[in-house]
Amino acid sequence: MPKFGELEAVIMDEVWQAGEPVLVRDVVQALQREREVAYTTVQTVMEILFRKGWLAREKDRRAYRYWARQPREEYTAQLLSEAFDTTSDRGAAFSRLLQDLQPGEIAELGQALEEARKRGIGE
């Protein structure tokens, strides 16, 4: 049986892909196409995701309908802005390949690089 952490990612994948509120049953059915997974396990993990703030839910008759609180792109944008935020000390927690070149420099360096490559053929 896959670990909870791994399942969290797979379930979020499904919810994001669905694009509309889903039942636990929908997710189980989608997951079972690729792996063996118990209904109760999925239910538990989705509860965890709800408590962690990843999923929102609303009662629909006797079951809950779940949907993602934020689209995936939003989280991605947040991660990137955190990692590349060089002004606050949050950014200090990461090492990044910085992109601080001016257009003029890019052209100049590109040319230098090309020449070095040509010279490098004989190396």
């Binding site: 969290e8 990612a9 979020m12 989280y75 991660l79 990137l80 927690a93 990461f94 090492s95 390949l97």
Partner: peptide, 29 residues
């Protein structure tokens, strides 16, 4: 923790991929 749910593993290199058109590379130590 967020990366674990939002990113996906690249099959060839094992790096975590994020769906975004802007070219960014960084590491989380």
């Amino acid at each position: 923790e967020t990366l674990a749910l939002v990113g996906r593993a690249a099959e060839d290199t094992g790096v975590t991929l994020l769906d975004d058109d802007r070219p960014y590379v960084y590491c989380v130590a």
